[in-house]
Design a protein around this nucleic acid. Structure first.
Lengths: 241, 241
DNA sequence: ATATTATAAATGGTCATACCAATATACCAT
DNA sequence: ATGGTATATTGGTATGACCATTTATAATAT
């Protein structure tokens, strides 16, 4: 390895295959390779990136698992049409949609979470209810990162209380991405207090086992979150002018 | 390789790493390793399965990408608690929940697809509408497998017409699993005709750009699908007595 | 010339071995 | 007991070879 390569690796606090994975992804998303295009063979990639074939294969295998490329022995590796990229991998979606991703995610939340709350109100157990109670508040004294953590837990626990693991998987699949979304809304003055209010209201509806009340409160909460993000975007836009 | 190994590979029409992946998954799901348990090191796995470390690593890497295990250099590979298995991989969910998976999936559909239809009614373009029209019918002359294909396409096109890629990803992530679900409902006498009716009704609502009508029609369709699956389960149960 | 078939080249899949890097363990000095 | 140092364990990467599948090319038959 050359000194430059060593420096490169030191800066990136990551395993090699992860770096290559990102590189490949960026190259594909940037449009250097379009759907149907044949990627260079593994051996060439290895030379180009200055790594062994092993890490190139690991990175390509990961892209294949995500539906981004198709690999066929003897033929090569081709890029799939974007409709077949059926992964909720944060890195992929971020590269594809940038900041607009958060609005799209919140639209999904607005669809699923009210029903999750309603189902939770029906099916939650006493033990689950106690766990939920513990993260229902958003203490003023906490840091933003702690707010994000508690908020994430709160919504995941509700999803879990539906007792349908598929529903939980859907929400947890986007939870990493939602962390950044939450950081943004919580950064807007007043949004934290609103979130605190809705969390309390939703919890009480679930505790009282009233699905319709839980559904409506969660729906309002989702609307509030969306408004919060829009406010953040406006403020952020003004800052950049 | 021993003759037995050669035979084994010949029978399994699959790449080696895929077989090992399945083996590992089965072992973990069967409970031989519980959450937090340390798996044997890669070198041991290679010996146990009679393959090279390369394929073991590829299989474990895939499990890691799915959140099923955590891999740490110097420490080893541990099984994650099931709440962190945030993948919609058909193989994983099938092993975990068996036939009950389909009910859970349909509950998700019941939550998201009515809203998808409503959004499609708002946002669909003329081109998308024509594509949808082409798969709206379920011709009597088609085979079951063709019905499954058209039905899958129909619902995916509606998701695509929401113009929110995240929504499309969620549905397409479960579409492979839904194929089997569809085979079952279509196997129940009368369900195909009902599906045909609702597809027509939903399409007309989308074509007329009436979100609420599309939402309600899709909601009814989802209810019908759920009923169809329940009928299938009852019939199937009786057969087994 | 055209079509078919045989051969070679290209490319992903697997193996074996060696060594690097991070972590955990055992041992020792204090 | 405590803390640090050497050692062992284990995942990460590099090389080189060879296998399996597909594609491209050349040879052959018609």
């Amino acid at each position: 390895m050359s000194p430059n390569e060593i420096l490169f690796r030191a800066v990136q606090n990551q395993k090699l295959f992860g770096q290559i994975n990102r590189q490949l992804l960026k190259t594909i998303v940037a449009g250097h390779y379009k759907a149907g295009d044949l990627l260079p063979p593994e051996r060439d990639h290895a030379d180009m990136f200055g790594v062994s074939r092993v890490v190139v294969r690991e990175a390509l295998g990961s892209l294949r698992d995500k539906g981004i490329v198709s690999i066929k022995q003897g033929r090569g590796t081709t890029v799939n049409p974007i409709d077949e990229w059926n992964t909720l991998d944060p890195e992929v979606l971020m590269l594809l949609y940038g900041d607009e991703l958060y609005e799209k995610l919140i639209q999904l939340r607005g669809i699923i979470e009210p029903e999750f709350a309603a189902l939770a109100a029906e099916n939650i157990t006493p033990e689950e209810l106690e766990k939920l109670r513990k993260v229902s508040d958003l203490p003023e004294s906490d840091t933003v990162e702690q707010h994000v953590e508690r908020d994430t837990m709160y919504h995941l626990l509700i999803a879990k209380a539906t007792h349908n693991p598929v529903l939980l998987i859907v929400l947890s699949s986007i939870s990493e991405m939602l962390r950044e979304s939450r950081r943004r809304t919580f950064a807007v003055h007043g949004e934290l207090a609103k979130a605190r209010y809705w969390h309390k209201t939703i919890f009480e509806a679930i505790e009282a086992h009233i699905p319709q009340a839980a559904r409506e409160a969660m729906s309002a909460h989702m609307q509030q979150v969306q408004n919060g993000l829009e406010r953040f975007n406006r403020l952020n836009q003004e800052d950049h002018n």
